[in-house]
Design a protein around this nucleic acid. Structure first.
Lengths: 112, 112
DNA sequence: CAATAACGCTACTAATATTGTAGCATCGTT
DNA sequence: AACGATGCTACAATATTAGTAGCGTTATTG
């Protein structure tokens, strides 16, 4: 799959708007999950594989390459970590953790 | 693809944690895009198809069904719209619009 | 210093998800 | 009754992801 580069045509949109590139990226399997898991702290490849319970190494590697080119993740001597830009993105998403609990209760409520 | 129901096993995780269900859901093609496009205001099926530039009707319908069961979208006489819960989710994500511009400039900067 | 183990990752096939197109059934208009 | 628009389904073609095996390299151990 080609990289969702802001400014260019992406999966589902050819307006070139950065938000569309971002939505394409985040809409790929495990992209959000990797960012979520990397927030805790940096991790080696195999460590990250463990944190993401059921990711295949081939996909993990593919996503990491994408996230590196897109400046959200970088690899250091200690393994992979979020870039400053990646941390900014995480900060935006971080309320999802708590919100998801609220959401879960909303869904259950209806099954009574 | 089975529904990412919070509390149950989902794609990539079997802890049952709501955040994992949410990340599974949002990681599906067009899920975020549909929520993003529906925020403006409610839309009929074909209207939504237009807003999402290149979505196939089969996938749009599949996603809408999922989003309805998961209480993020509801269908009314005027078409589809976000539920209150869906609006909450959008509020969390909404900073992504502006942030994506910043992100785009970061990426360009490096190509100098 | 050989043997072992762990690591980062690639290769490859099977399984699954998404696209793309055609078109059906229903409804309101003319 | 004919027409167009709408909501959606069906289905084959294509693209993505999962799953597993294992290669090459670098510690670590005996």
């Amino acid at each position: 799959m080609s990289l969702p580069m802001p400014g260019e045509q992406v999966r589902g949109s050819n307006t070139g708007k950065p938000i569309m590139a971002l939505l394409d990226l985040l809409g790929r399997t495990w992209a959000l999950g990797i960012i979520w898991q990397l927030n805790q702290d940096s991790a080696t490849f195999r460590e990250l594989q463990n944190r993401c319970e059921q990711i295949s190494p081939s996909l993990l590697n593919t996503r990491l390459k994408e996230l590196k080119v897109l400046k959200l993740v970088e690899s250091t001597a200690n393994g992979y970590k979020l870039t400053v830009t990646g941390q900014e993105l995480f900060s935006i998403m971080s309320p999802l953790g708590e919100w998801s609990l609220h959401w879960a209760s909303q869904i259950k409520k209806d099954n009574i």
